[in-house]
Nucleic acid binder design. Structure first.
Lengths: 233, 233
DNA sequence: CCTATGCAAATACACAGACATAAACTACTT
DNA sequence: AAGTAGTTTATGTCTGTGTATTTGCATAGG
């Protein structure tokens, strides 16, 4: 093969991807070794290694010592959806953001929440209800429960001007979470605060958050009628 | 500082992450240079580079030539949700998967779809309606439109035994896509095929797919009542 | 026929050195 | 004060080499 010169790892990555997409290297087939590719592209083995490692990270190929590098048969594409704070979402739409605290109560943890967060019986949690408006129209209703054990000084925060989402993000910036999306009917306070008829389908996002394996918060965010969450991959 | 030895890039990545989480290096602050860190950890600069690059890929830090490495102020966490085929989802629940083709028609592209896919007026598309069952209960209703221009031999496929999702995944394995989630009321064929009362909130996923910048397909997948899509990050 | 063991092949990771590149900074000019 | 050109600096990338680790395969033993 023609040994090309001056190729960066990105060029190699793209070329390999191209050969996979055009079925020069079909699904399930074995790629040449790093050494062979390095010879073909006229570069160091480490450069090929980086190119292939990136493709492996994306799930395009799988690599095994001694086994070599294979094109995956059924690629598992992952949609990455950026989790931003509501204010950001609204401001990105060039709309005016308004936040309002609906209620704030210290309660002892209800059983269903105990199970979700893995808390002790009788643990105290801060329960908040909040509204987020875009251009004075209801955008999102936020029900939140915060574990006072993991975030003790949350009790000093009144949440009158700043939403719990943003406050927690600045307090516990790097956390793990589990998310669930679903469609729910508008009932009770949902239909009241989001100003929709009873039974209206609403998009809902539930999230449990941990910091260093300690439960931080559970949140249920319900969006206005017709809301769409979008992403690419 | 104490120069530790025998640290891999993973150890360095974890140590740096730990210092960020414990606010030794607070949000917005400047990290030591790669050279300094290499000296501290007793390793080569390339090793530090890889560790920091991974953290940068995860969105924990930002890096700029000459500017150095900074802890991001507001981390934009990305939820990764794996896009799997329905059959996989159902079989992972230990349920029996059943597929049924509802309708299959060549039609000329309706205006709304023209806009979505960027097609010419009068372009021919294959329109399919399909049902996916789990243990003989309705699981997902799939409405799909396939661009016969990008995938010509789709016309030879009858889709009686294999769903368009799986067929396309094997034909066009590596593609780009745009996804939208929403909550919709059950109407018309939705409430009929998913066996729910009219107006029932249903979780819906819409997706446009391209291959090498050519539009491939638009799909609208509506799930059974109460379905939750879950993911971690 | 099955299992254990050893060899070899391919990737994984590391290192030291080098050059490239972008951007912050400085000094100079207008 | 504002622009401009040169310098410095931290990251980005590549090279060539070396070692470590995993694992496919063959071979030997039960």
């Amino acid at each position: 093969m023609s040994a090309q010169k001056n190729m960066g790892f990105q060029d190699i990555r793209d070329e390999v991807l191209n050969r996979i997409q055009t079925r020069i290297w079909p699904q399930g087939s074995l790629l040449p070794t790093e050494l062979e590719l390095a010879a073909e592209f006229g570069c160091a083995r480490a450069t090929v290694n980086r190119a292939l490692r990136e493709l492996a990270d994306e799930g395009i190929i799988t690599r095994r010592r001694k086994g070599g590098t294979r094109v995956v048969t059924t690629p598992v594409k992952q949609a990455k959806l950026p989790i931003t704070v509501v204010r950001q979402t609204i401001e990105d739409m060039n709309a005016e953001y308004r936040y309002a605290l609906v209620s704030r109560n210290m309660i002892s943890c209800p059983p269903w929440l105990q199970a979700k967060l893995g808390l002790q019986e009788g643990a105290q949690v801060l329960h908040l209800n909040c509204m987020h408006h875009a251009d004075n129209r209801p955008f999102q209703f936020e029900e939140r429960w915060i574990n006072t054990d993991t975030v003790p000084h949350v009790v000093d925060q009144d949440f009158l001007t700043i939403g719990p989402n943003e406050w927690l993000l600045s307090e516990i910036p790097f956390s793990d979470a589990e998310i669930a999306f679903s469609a729910v009917p508008a009932t009770g306070q949902l239909q009241e605060f989001l100003s929709v008829p009873p039974g209206t389908p609403l998009f809902q996002l539930e999230r449990i958050t941990w910091f260093q394996n300690k439960p931080v918060t559970f949140v249920r965010m319900t969006f206005h009628q017709g809301y769409q969450m979008r992403t690419k991959y």
